[in-house]
Structure formats: structure tokens, C-alpha cells
């Protein structure tokens, strides 16, 4: 028969964490983006990997990304408890103890990085370790609570997986990998600032210096427009550098222009309408990244199969 060690444990653990709570620590939605972008990077890279090695590499990158998510929840437990979007996460909801989360995150990091190195190469593994370090230490612990540019600098963490996917296959960082990295990097600020515009109250309550709370809504909208323009330009760079065709170029141009229009439409309207439009931009930005990467991938695969690339 099993026992809990003390009444304090009973209070906190109550009926114990379920497997689904551990899965929630991995931030499955962020993980799906990590898996998707890493897969795109991997499939776009020349040559390719043995299917099993590719599968193991994707799994390692996914688990590494999940480990970073768990460590983020460990360090952010206090602010997660305040925000409506995060208060049902396993730690603030009291379903799992903080120290268990720390152990879980470190354990997954300790496994995912060496396995990626053994399966592919140690440059990819080094980049995965750097991603976890960047997200947990640079973004979560350091920048998130002190600068309104947190999302811009922290955005690099989300942009690394596509590069890791590429490096896992080729063993080196090339211009194509950097372009793919730049697309996700420049996509992050308008995506999260759109969220911050309509969830402003949440971030204010948690005392996180998001741009709308610190610099105001107009300054945020201006920066969203600037980053949307930069994103639209970088979005067509794969055509310029010759690793995407004109079909991709057309789709990326249309989507990039739509993003700019949605960003400009945030200006000069009343609060309520601006929030609705910010939500629309947030949703569109999700589709933007998914569609341009999917088109880039499908076009490359079709061109390869037909022997045109």
C-alpha cells in the first residue's frame, strides 16, 4: 500500500498528477509549431535522412521544445496563476508540484539533446541545447519581466527549430536555414503583440512589460506594421535565393500583403473594434506561417519528384 510522506504533500498533490498534466507541461500547441517548422526545415534540406533517423530527430526536437515549455512553467508559475489564459496550467491549478516540473524539464532536456546528437549530428544537438537555454534563461528568467522587447528577442527561441531541422540533415548552417529562421523570427512580434493588444489586462495584472502596457497601443500598432512589412519582404526571400519557385512567391506575396493590410487596419479605430481586429490578426498570423511553410514544402517536393529541382 502506498502512502504520502506528509500532510503538506497530501494538500498539494491531492489526487496526484495525471499523465495528461505532464503532457500539458510540454505546451502541446507550441510543440506542434516546433514539430511542423522542424519538419519543414528537415524536408527542405537537400539529400535527406533515413526515415527512422528523421522520426527520431523530430521526436527529440519536439521533446526538447517540450522540456523548454516545462521549465518555462516552473519559472513562470507565479505569473501563470494571475493570467486567465494560463491559470489552469498544471502548477497554478495545483495538480502538480513545482519541483516535479523542474525535474521533468531537466530530465527531458538531458535525454532529447544527446539523442538528437547521436541520431543526426552534434551541431543540431548544440542548437537544440541553445534553444532550450535561450527560451528558459534568456527569455523566461531574464527578459520577459524586464523589457517590452521581450517578444522580439525571445522570438529567436521559436525560430530555431526550423534551423535545427535543416542542420540535422546538412550538418551546417547555410543561407537557406537563416532565411527560414528569419521568417519565424520576424513573424513572432506581430503575432504576440496582436495577442497582447486584446489580452492587455492580463499582462498588466501579471506585471509583464508587454509593449501595449508600456509604450501604449499606438506605438505597438506601429511596430506591428513595421514587423509585418519586414515579414512580407523576408517571406519572398526563398524565391530570391533560389530555393522556392514562383508559385510559393505568389502565395507568400499575397499573404504578406494581407498581413500588412490587417496590421494597418488596427489604426484609427475605437478600442473595442481594435481588439476585435487584433484578434483577427492574431488568428491570421497563425495561418500565415502554416500556409507559407506548407506551400514551400509541397512546391519543393513536387519539383523534386518531377525532376525540376
Amino acid at each position: 500500500m502506498a502512502y504520502l510522506d506528509s500532510s503538506a504533500d497530501i494538500q498539494q498533490a491531492d489526487i496526484g498528477a495525471d499523465v495528461s498534466d505532464y503532457f500539458a507541461l510540454l505546451k502541446p500547441r507550441v510543440m506542434s509549431l516546433v514539430v511542423f517548422t522542424a519538419l519543414v526545415g528537415m524536408l527542405l534540406a537537400p539529400n535527406g535522412l533515413h526515415p527512422f533517423v528523421g522520426l527520431l530527430a523530430i521526436l527529440s526536437i519536439a521533446i526538447g521544445g517540450g522540456a523548454a515549455g516545462a521549465l518555462n512553467m516552473y519559472f513562470d508559475a507565479d505569473i501563470d496563476a494571475i493570467m486567465s489564459r494560463t491559470k489552469n496550467r498544471p502548477i497554478p491549478a495545483g495538480r502538480i508540484k513545482k519541483n516535479q516540473v523542474l525535474g521533468f524539464g531537466l530530465f527531458l532536456t538531458g535525454f532529447s539533446v544527446p539523442i538528437l546528437g547521436l541520431a543526426t549530428n552534434f551541431m543540431a544537438a548544440g542548437l537544440l541545447a541553445l534553444t532550450i537555454f535561450y527560451y528558459v534563461v534568456i527569455y523566461t528568467i531574464w527578459l520577459k519581466r524586464i523589457t517590452p522587447q521581450n517578444i522580439v528577442i525571445g522570438g529567436a527561441a521559436g525560430a530555431f527549430p526550423v534551423m535545427i531541422g535543416w542542420v540535422a540533415v546538412t550538418g551546417s548552417v547555410s543561407i537557406e536555414a537563416l532565411v527560414l529562421f528569419s521568417i519565424v523570427f520576424l513573424w513572432t512580434p506581430p503575432h504576440f503583440w496582436a495577442l497582447a493588444l486584446y489580452k492587455k489586462g492580463d499582462y498588466e495584472a501579471a506585471k509583464i512589460p508587454m509593449l501595449p502596457n508600456v509604450a501604449g497601443e499606438n506605438a505597438t500598432i506601429l511596430q506591428i506594421i513595421v514587423y509585418s512589412v519586414l515579414l512580407a519582404i523576408v517571406g519572398v526571400l526563398p524565391v530570391v535565393f533560389g530555393f522556392a519557385g514562383y508559385f510559393y512567391g505568389a502565395v507568400a506575396s499575397v499573404l504578406g500583403l494581407t498581413m500588412i493590410v490587417l496590421a494597418i487596419r488596427l489604426r484609427g479605430v475605437e478600442q473595442k473594434q481594435m481588439r476585435q481586429r487584433a484578434r483577427k490578426l492574431f488568428t491570421f498570423s497563425l495561418s500565415y506561417l502554416f500556409v507559407i511553410f506548407l506551400v514551400l514544402l509541397l512546391e519543393t517536393l513536387v519539383l523534386r519528384m518531377t525532376g525540376a529541382a
Binding site: Y3, L4, S7, I15, G16
Partner: peptide, 12 residues
């Protein structure tokens, strides 16, 4: 301190 665990705890 030694409380018998519930069925739900054991299931989890």
C-alpha cells in the same frame, strides 16, 4: 501523516 491513498490517486 500516513493516509491511505484514494482509488483515483492509485489509478493515476
Amino acid at each position: 501523516d500516513q493516509q491511505v491513498l484514494s482509488e483515483e490517486y492509485k489509478k493515476r
